[in-house]
Write a protein that binds this DNA or RNA. Structure first.
Length: 919
DNA sequence: TGCTCCTGCAA
DNA sequence: TATTGCAGGAGCA
């Protein structure tokens, strides 16, 4: 059967542009999108279709603009770096032999729709290559979608599975959901789930419209509000299949490629793998290098059972082996030892690395070749496996050899698990999650499945694919060895391939490579040690506090009931409404979206001066929050084996480079109120030890002084004075700092912090409770006194606009995806983030560097002290009492030396029996 | 049960 | 109409 591939060129160009880091060739011309598109096209050619076309939008209006003037009004101008790649892209597409279609008056979508249906009607097998979900409406027997960026293929069943409705209902689904990219508003709060549910219940869009009057709840109101638009929405999202065209599917034969032109273009843009292929190299050669295989594999592998399926793009060598015999393991140990770098991965039965049991291990030494060593699989009929001691005994020499380099994906987890089995992994040289994070922290998630889709165009077997999900999920130990091998060995295989794809990109950017090599990689083991150390939490103290809070909540409740004149539930907004607004007759100043009187904090504050009850409710809620979030929950996080709380630090969590903490989050333990602070008393040192907390004083403001080089601000820090007081003296002309009033200092502090977050006069006014004009005057005064700060902010905004990213002192980049958005709100948000990121990010870099130095020093101190927490600008230690003075001095010195700025870094230290006292 | 929104804690 | 996070509860189906 003849085959036709229709390529949605615009979709790929945009997606490749946003998905890939902004690569450039030797001349500095942008090539990222080009690179993505070219690889995709080469993969398409491997499929050897009979007909193909590359379809792009023609400039100018289309019928949709006429129907709906706001159509795509949100869409940003094409960024300069992308526009520059359009012409070369067309040249390459043409030289590869693809017909390029560009029809005025309609969108590329409609051209594709028309050709696709015409071809399907002629019995041609059609593949539409696109990343746009709207095309799901075209799917039918003989017409499928493929997304080469993710490797996913959508046929009839696939559409049903992905969207929950058949292809014929996709336009209805889209009409309900709307499309913010194209500026088509749908039903508010109606996402894919709700839309699919309605369509299943009522048949089609007309059915949903007919049922609208009876639809309950907020969402029903939203539906009724959107009713008038839905018809137009459906028209806008319907891809036309009847565009008059001067050609048909069979006119789209591929031409022979123009090798001469291609060679020139490939060379110019530095596409070495593509060049090699052109010059006679095989796909397998290129694949092993890490470029081409990505997209080719996406086609070849999607839907295939991985265990037994060698990857054709890898030259048929791909092979996943399940190791259950000592001889086989011995052979693998030899391979690991001989390899310049090997990838490894552990499989366990729990997400918590400090509780998980080792179920198996996988290794890979070259792309396409990997093994899985099952240890604990246990299901009826399962074959015998090597025992844990034997396996770890054989692997220990290579795992603990610092000269044998390893790569992992989120290897901190694996290090933890192996450590608990007595293996101290050394030579952990690379981590693909961190490579992705450093290359582009905001690009997407950094889990392996996402990375494989993004950088390799490869669809991995997901954990749910082998274990199921939700209530039906089984532990990995019950997965059949064949499937387990397919999943686990693939993890190691893909990790190695990701390393080969990502590391060269880091090497091309020395500053990024340094962030990765000098900061992130050394930090992995430091964080693992901090997590393993854990912190001692006094559960009895928390229980006492819970009890105390409960009593006070009860007391507040009694008083509230007395004030209200009758009992009611303080937790029920509905009852509160009745009491406050109906029975007590207080004014309802704030409304919920539904138009009901709100009982949120703002609403209660607003009427707190008229009655005692609102204040009481706020007090009750505050107590309930502390109890519900902290005193009741923290004891559940105590590890039964160690008796301590082991948080998990996420190294690729915050885009700015900060760490985040979860399970439990130890970076948001209360401190600002007395009641909250008490919780910190439960974070204790064991007998004979002390808690030591060392924190950077005003580190982000100091970084602002450094980056702005503003003489006034630098002087304030050099003088070692209270910087907010100094700022107040400057801005309010109070003369000597001693003459500054408390209010002036408070205002100066608000300005100092507000500016770092890009706050407006409006925000400052609200913060200080003053008029907007007055706030504007303060800001103007501030900038007049500190002109360097204003210039720095303007420079930062400009850099963000021009380059699309900002960077820290150490070269870490933060890409700002919305900086050129036409949507005012998004763009303003991106500008604020741009101003904040260099400061927050530099602070994060500095403390990470300090942690590495401190950890190295602690290693030689014989366990007299241990690092146990990091809270953004603070490091917390547990130390032998006699060791405290030395610890304070040595840690302070290393924290100060972690960066050399134009202003001094100051570290404050506190010591106590618990975390509260240490402040 | 899982999803979304809201609220509130930290630096 | 202030940055970066994580987490609990309510409301909803």
């Amino acid at each position: 059967m003849p085959r036709l591939v229709l390529i949605d060129g615009s979709s790929y160009l945009y997606r490749a542009f946003h998905a890939l880091p902004p690569l450039t060739n030797a001349e500095g011309e942008p090539t990222g999108a080009l690179f993505g598109v070219v690889n995709m096209l080469r993969a398409t050619l491997k499929e050897a279709p009979d007909y193909a076309a590359f379809v792009v939008d023609a400039p100018g209006r289309t019928f949709r603009d006429d129907l709906y003037p706001e159509y795509k009004a949100n869409r940003a101008e094409m960024p300069q770096e992308l526009r520059a790649q359009v012409q070369p892209m067309c040249e390459i597409v043409a030289a590869l032999g693809f017909p390029i279609l560009r029809e005025a008056g309609v969108e590329a979508d409609d051209v594709i729709g028309t050709l696709a249906l015409a071809a399907a009607a002629q019995g041609i097998e059609v593949t539409v290559s696109t990343g746009d979900k709207d095309f799901a409406q075209l799917v039918r027997p003989g017409l499928r979608l493929v997304n080469t960026m993710t490797g996913s293929v959508l046929d009839d069943a696939g559409v049903m599975e992905k969207f929950g409705v058949p292809p014929a209902r996709i336009v209805d689904l889209l009409a309900l959901m709307g499309d913010s990219v194209d500026n088509i508003p749908g039903v508010e709060k109606c996402g894919p789930k709700t839309a699919a549910k309605w369509l299943t219940a009522y048949g089609d869009l007309d059915g949903v419209i007919a049922a609208a009057p009876d639809m309950k709840g907020k969402i029903g109101e939203n539906l009724r509000a959107a009713l008038p638009r839905l018809g137009l929405n459906r028209t806008l999202v319907t891809i036309r299949t009847d565009v008059p065209l001067a050609f048909g599917p069979t006119d789209l034969a591929l031409r022979p490629r123009d090798a001469g032109t291609l060679r020139g273009l490939y060379a110019r843009y530095g596409f070495t793998q593509a060049l090699r292929e052109l010059d006679g190299g095989t796909a397998a050669d290129a694949a092993a290098e890490g470029t081409l295989r990505n997209t080719a594999a996406g086609y070849a592998r999607s839907g295939a059972a991985p265990a037994e399926a060698p990857d054709p793009a890898l030259g048929g060598k791909g092979e996943y082996e399940c190791v259950t015999a000592p001889e086989a393991l011995a052979a693998w140990v030899e391979r690991l030892r001989a390899a310049p770098l090997f990838a490894f991965d552990v499989e366990t039965d729990a997400l918590d690395a400090l509780r998980a049991r080792l179920v198996g291990l996988s290794f890979s030494v070259e792309p396409g070749r990997a093994c899985y060593v099952p240890l604990l699989h246990d299901y009826p009929g399962c074959q015998p496996q090597l025992d844990v001691e034997t396996v770890l005994g054989m692997l220990r020499p290579v795992l603990e050899d610092p000269a044998v380099a390893k790569v992992g994906q989120h290897g901190k987890y694996d290090l933890h698990v192996l450590r608990r089995y007595g293996i101290a992994v050394r030579g952990y040289a690379h981590d693909t999650m961190l490579q992705s994070f450093v290359l582009n922290s905001t690009a997407s998630r950094h889990d392996m499945d996402s990375l494989a889709a993004r950088y390799l165009g490869y669809t991995t077997t997901r954990y749910e694919d082998v274990c199921g999900k939700g209530a039906k999920q089984i532990p990995f130990s019950q997965v059949e060895l064949e499937h387990a091998t397919g999943y686990a060995a693939e993890d190691a295989d893909v990790t190695l391939r990701l390393h080969r794809a990502l590391h060269p990109r880091l090497e091309a950017e020395p500053a990024l490579l340094s962030v990765y090599t000098d900061i992130e990689m050394p930090l992995v083991e430091v964080l693992a040690r901090i997590e393993a150390n854990g912190v001692l939490v006094d559960a009895d103290e928390l229980r006492r506090q819970s009890h105390d809070l409960a009593l006070r909540m009860h007391e507040a409740e009694q008083r509230a009931h007395a004030l209200a004149g009758r009992p009611f539930s303080l937790e029920s907004p509905k009852q509160l409404q009745a009491i406050l607004f109906d029975e007590l007759g207080l004014p309802a100043l704030v409304k919920t979206p539904k138009g009901q009187p709100s009982t949120n904090e703002d609403a209660l504050e607003a009427i707190a001066d008229q009655h005692d009850l609102p204040r009481l409710i706020l007090e009750y809620r505050g107590l309930a929050k502390l109890r519900g979030t902290y005193t009741d929950k923290l004891p559940n996080s105590i590890n039964p084996d160690t008796g301590r709380v082991h948080t998990s630090y996420h190294q690729a969590g915050a885009a700015t480079g900060r760490l985040s903490s979860s399970d439990p989050n130890l970076q948001n333990i209360p401190i600002r109120t007395e009641d909250g602070r008490r919780i910190r008393r439960a974070f204790v040192a064991p007998p004979g030890r002390r808690i030591v907390a060392c924190d950077y004083s005003q580190i982000e403001l100091r970084i602002m002084a450094h980056l702005s080089e503003d003489p006034g601000l630098v002087r304030a820090f050099e003088g070692g004075v209270d910087v907010h007081r100094a700022t107040a003296a400057e801005v309010f002309g109070a003369g000597a700092p001693e003459a500054v009033t408390a209010d002036q200092r408070r205002a100066a502090k608000a300005i100092n912090f507000g500016l770092m977050y890009g706050m407006s006069a409006f925000g400052l006014a609200r913060q200080l409770g003053i008029a907007r004009g007055e706030a504007q005057d303060y800001i103007a005064l501030y900038f007049a006194r500190y002109p360097g700060v204003r210039d720095f902010m303007e420079r930062t905004r400009e850099q963000a606009r021009e380059r699309g990213y900002v960077e820290t002192v150490f070269g870490r980049r933060l890409y700002l995806n919305d900086i050129a958005s036409r949507n005012q709100g998004l763009r303003a948000g991106a500008e604020r983030a741009a101003i904040n990121a260099p400061m927050q990010g530099t602070a994060a870099d500095i403390i990470k560097r300090a942690m590495i130095e401190v950890d190295a020093w602690l290693a030689g101190q014989g366990g007299r002290a241990a690092m146990i927490m990091q809270v953004h600008d603070e490091l917390v230690f547990e130390a032998d009492e006699a060791f405290v003075p030395e610890l304070v001095q040595e840690v302070g010195r290393r924290m100060q030396a972690a960066a050399t700025l134009r202003v001094p870094l100051v570290v404050d230290a506190g010591v106590g029996g618990n975390w509260d006292e240490a402040h």
